[in-house]
Design a protein around this nucleic acid. Structure first.
Lengths: 336, 336
DNA sequence: GCATAACATGTTACCGTTAACAGACCGCCG
DNA sequence: CGGCGGTCTGTTAACGGTAACATGTTATGC
């Protein structure tokens, strides 16, 4: 690739003159400008952003560190982020941690070295380490989807507690009394919040002691295993609340294998919608989160920080979750 | 963020000594090494990859330019790419072009400026411009999923022709004689290939004149519109072949709205599987492509090129597509 | 006991770009 | 006609890191 020096030589001027043409700064005569532009075109010159970034200390690049892009919730989030970022001329480096703290730390180190201007982080665990790492190095950060025990960090997330409360109430109102929660890892704030919402709904119904909580991971395998375990319980729950979409899919498989019809014999409801695009038969009763908007808002917040705009206090933006009742939830068999 | 100079000052050595410690090169006394390491830890120093890249002319970063990450096929592809890249210490910048040539050109310019070591490109159109742009600037490139009219470029794609042939034959064997193809844009090679496979199957069955081809975009809206159009045709086709998953979903919506039961009254089969994770009710008969492996292989190919390994001739890796018969295809009503 | 090699550290220059400063030339004003 | 301001272009140094070279010190071998 040619450099500004090559262009300068070809146009018979100094590199500084070329730089002025590129950046439209200072004075250049019409004739020189044309000569330089011709040289640029002939050489197919593109400025070296590394050299620029080294001087300006900004790369116009942000990092998106999430757990798994194949989870449709995160896919949509990522799309919202990339759209909002590219609109303002920013590029996005994306990283999948698979919920591993070590992977996350590794990626943080890499993107810090690459001098990203900011980080959008879906933290793998509910610790303050990652945020502290970034703060020490002066890298702005917005935490996405989950809380971390650090009150001074910008956060954009869905309202897991209220969403879980809504979903549990929905099941209670259908007449269910034995509702099991198939939850994600306790260390992840969304799991803690969904548990809290579930508990609150049960408590309000005077059924606090009926809580049945299984703790696993936000994966299909874990959903499958938790459901198997649950099916062995006596008496069996009449409704399952899956704490995310993957758990729901895994659990559904287990229910199918056990020959249980949904929702006739057992109800199943979940947190996190699947994109409408993909729901061939709109089936799951869910609490959906506005993933695309969440990504947009987080990016706007981060880019505003980078531009030194907006309020200085840390923001916590909590987007509402919405209950969407579909076919997977119905009154319990006994109640019919 | 602190620099190598700050570390050097704190440790009372030259920057070169610090550099040697970081890179484990040359000779350093145990004592000096420890002093430097302490200084690094105290300052939370991370080396500036920009400065390094400026010297070495490699950024350990690749660009992934695709049309839309929310298409599950590309999501899985992207995941395969990121996994393969990060395993070798490479970061991935991702860009959504939404099938726009202008967006693609814009992104190419940006990533060229950012000095990515290579580009994985799902071209928005079947022109050689983008590949030429990269070649002029010496940026290695692997074209993904689609062909471009440039025989000298590495390509990794699925076998659209054979897959479409298989799927069409499947419908023919079920007894269908009026099979409509709801295709993507003719300018995209996968659409051309799927059309060719479809035509070949019909020709082989002596039904070449029965071909009915609708051309649209690879989107749900387009699938919906094409299906509406098709439903007005007399006589109506008994089977639809949707050229990708989004078209299939849009078409299914139109069929539902028209009150047509699938597959009893009309069959529907598609190219591109939906991830098993998301198929709540395995429903669509499809030709699936190994998206994750495609991403992996493309990345390996690109990284090998960067390392100067592997054959020098351009590669064309064509991965097989696989017919998966599920519930959306059945014999035509008349044949029952 | 002295050349020689191995070890340990520092200095200089460069990667590509641009801010800051420095000239050179022009016309215009008093 | 001397000086001043506007226009145009060039030189130098710096961003953070490292290769290549230089220098000094200590151990090794004969």
């Amino acid at each position: 690739m040619s450099t500004i020096g090559d262009v300068a030589k070809r146009a018979g001027v100094s590199t500084m003159t070329v730089s002025r043409v590129i950046n439209n700064s200072g004075y250049i005569s019409q004739e020189t400008r044309e000569r330089v532009e011709r040289a640029i075109a002939e050489l197919g010159y593109v400025p070296n952003a590394l050299a620029r970034s080294l001087r300006f200390k900004r790369t116009k690049t942000i990092a998106l560190i999430l757990t798994d892009i194949t989870n449709p919730f995160f896919t949509t989030l990522a799309r919202g982020i990339e759209d909002a970022a590219s609109e303002q001329g920013f590029s996005v480096i994306f990283c999948n941690t698979d919920e591993s703290k070590d992977e996350e730390a590794e990626y943080l180190s890499v993107v810090a070295q690459k001098q990203v201007d900011g980080v959008l982080l879906v933290p793998a665990s509910s610790s303050a380490e990652s945020v502290a790492f970034l703060r020490e190095r002066g890298i702005p950060c917005v935490v996405l989807d989950r809380r971390v025990p650090d009150s001074a960090v910008d956060t954009v997330r869905g309202d897991s507690e209220a969403g879980a409360h809504q979903l549990t109430r929905h099941l209670l109102e259908l007449g269910h009394r034995r509702i099991a929660l198939l939850n994600g890892p306790a260390a992840v704030s969304t799991a803690a919040d969904r548990l809290a919402g579930y508990r609150r709904a049960l408590d309000e119904a005077g059924l606090g002691s009926a809580a049945r909580v299984y703790e696993g991971a936000y994966t299909m395998e874990s959903g499958y295993r938790m459901a198997l375990q649950l099916l062995a319980d006596v008496p069996r729950p009449t409704a399952l609340f899956a704490a995310n979409n993957f758990i729901a899919i895994g659990a559904l498989r287990a229910l199918r294998e056990a020959g249980l019809r949904v929702p006739d014999e057992i109800s199943l409801a979940a947190f996190d919608d699947l994109p409408a695009a993909i729901m061939i038969e709109p089936f799951f009763t869910v609490v959906g989160q506005p993933a695309y908007e969440m990504g947009q808002q987080a990016t706007w917040l981060l880019l505003n920080r980078l531009a030194g705009q907006g309020p200085t206090e840390p923001q916590e933006i909590v987007l509402p979750a919405q209950l969407i009742v579909r076919q997977s939830s119905a009154p319990p068999p006994a109640a019919r």
